[in-house]
Design a protein around this nucleic acid. Structure first.
Length: 495
DNA sequence: GACGACACAAATCT
DNA sequence: CAGATTTGTGTCGT
């Protein structure tokens, strides 16, 4: 309990961003889209990426219910140069009829892995408890976004400060089967009538959501170490799975053709995209080849300058390349979700156009009983927009391009409990300093994205990623420090 | 055990 | 570099 010795606090180590975040399965297109002249049948792809909040524990993508995570999404239409047609004119086939699509929207939701049970997601403002709580809602988006590109012509929507309303059951306990959730990103087409039709969706990897403080899982994590070669819990905690564990991890076969659609890719790339996305000054790197080019497997992400690999797929052995953890959990929610239309929307008063949107209400459930979108109706626009960021050329934001190249993790705490349990809640003031001392270096590879109050286009700070080579070498040499309290703090310090 | 609240403090941002 | 914000998470009381 003593005051943390000054020396204990290890200097933050940079995080090794080679970690990925929960991957996403290939987009499931649920209805046909055609070019206005019906000469082409469009293939839609949703790109999604979860930032911050998750780490790998026992091979499961895990997060804490109370912590924030954010999800960015964009979509593209194959064969269309979205840089030119971001406002894709197209027709949607519904019950045999071809209806004009007025616009597209994306929304995120969650559900239990093997069931339809919807898991509520909530978003907060920076005020947290003090502020309002909202539910992710469908938001307008234009085609052409590229999560990994920092191109100004990218349309990416980011749902920030998202939390699961509830935790998964049986977390970490052996007694019962671990329950999993899956986040899904849905793409809707809004018809002239105002109806929202679910056009496509993509599911994330199965996720474990812990309901209690990290300290409660400490022990478990310690021994649940899986043995993914080369990866130990520590790393998990840090949220940087050395995905280089080529090959599929533990017996989770990847169904052929069902490669996870992971969004992040290799080193650092997962970092700045968000901020940069809107960098208006950035060169126009169109995502051209993105949806067109290499995509043999139908779902690969654009190659990264850093990651050789655009090798996402199964065979990726690339020794040094980071390959996603592509185990395919048994029974993940697969493609046959009811392709339906999400009910009708009422009205059509919303105004799109801007990067902002104020959606009115729509009710319906497109997945059993998805959220009741009516709830949005009463939320004022501001509230609705809180926690949501939309990147688009129309709302360029200044960008403070990176500064120091050190990606430092936000405090690492998953272990503080171990040593600071003694704390007594300060009574009168802050007398008792919780000795949260030992904060080892990294932990959650927090994708540092801007954190101020959300505004549609707020400049984000760019966090440059750690040079890949460095990270890599570390990984290779296993120089990771433990995330948890090291037996000897020094162990972590030097270095 | 899971959750909502409240509180403190570390990490970040300005 | 300091003050202001954000956000992770320890604790309590349910």
């Amino acid at each position: 309990m003593g005051p943390p010795s000054p020396t204990i606090r290890v200097k933050r180590r940079e995080v090794f961003p080679y970690q990925e975040s929960p991957y996403f399965y290939p987009t499931q297109q649920l209805c046909n889209l055609f070019s206005p002249d019906q000469s082409m049948n469009y293939n839609v792809k949703i790109a999604a990426k979860i930032d911050r909040g998750f780490f790998l524990a026992s091979n499961d993508w895990t997060c804490y219910r109370r912590n924030y995570f954010q999800l960015s999404a964009s979509f593209g239409i194959q064969g269309l140069d979205s840089s030119v047609h971001s406002e894709v004119p197209c027709l949607l086939e519904r019950n045999g009829d071809l209806l004009a699509v007025r616009s597209f929207l994306v929304c995120i939701g969650a559900q239990i892995q093997n069931g339809e049970k919807v898991i509520e997601l909530v978003q907060h403002t920076p005020k947290r408890d003090k502020g309002p709580q909202i539910t992710p809602r469908p938001t307008h988006i234009r085609a052409g976004g590229d999560l990994n590109a920092n191109s100004p012509g990218s349309y990416v929507i980011t749902f920030e400060r998202v939390q699961f309303k509830t935790a998964t059951a049986n977390n970490g306990k052996r007694r019962a089967a671990q329950q999993y959730y899956q986040v899904h990103v849905d793409l809707f087409a809004e018809l002239e009538s105002g109806d929202l039709i679910l056009v496509a969706k993509t599911y994330s990897a199965p996720l474990v959501v812990r309901g209690r403080s990290p300290g409660h899982y400490a022990d478990n994590d310690e021994d649940h170490q899986d043995g993914i070669q080369g990866v130990d819990s520590r790393h998990h905690y840090r949220n940087d799975s050395v995905s280089s564990m080529s090959g599929a991890p533990l017996g989770s076969p990847v169904s052929p053709g069902e490669y996870p659609y992971y969004s992040g890719y290799a080193y650092g790339s997962s970092y700045p995209y968000q901020s940069l996305t809107s960098a208006s000054h950035m060169a126009h790197s169109q995502d051209a080849g993105y949806y067109n080019g290499n995509r043999k497997n139908s779902e690969s992400y654009p190659g990264s300058p850093l990651s050789p690999a655009a090798v996402p797929h199964a065979t990726s052995h690339a020794g040094e390349s980071v390959s996603p953890d592509m185990y395919s959990p048994a029974g993940f929610v697969g493609p046959e979700s009811p392709a339906l239309s999400m009910g009708r929307v009422s009205h059509s008063t919303s105004h799109y156009g801007g990067s902002n949107n104020s959606y009115n209400h729509y009710s319906s459930s497109y997945n059993s009983q998805q959220h009741n979108y009516d709830m949005y109706r009463d939320q004022d626009h501001e509230t609705q927009m809180a926690g949501l960021r939309i990147h688009s050329p129309s709302s360029p934001k200044p960008l403070s391009v990176a500064s120091s190249p050190s990606v430092t993790p936000r405090r690492q705490s998953f272990s503080s409990t171990l040593i600071s349990k003694s704390t007594e809640r300060s009574v009168g003031g802050s007398t008792t300093r919780k000795s949260r001392s030992i904060s080892l270096s990294g932990t959650t590879t927090t994708t540092t994205v801007s954190k101020r109050p959300i505004s549609n286009s707020r400049p984000s700070r760019t966090v440059p990623a750690t040079p890949p080579n460095e990270m890599h070498s570390r990984a290779v040499h296993g120089v990771f420090s433990k995330d948890r309290i090291p037996e000897s703090p020094m162990e972590d310090q030097h270095l």
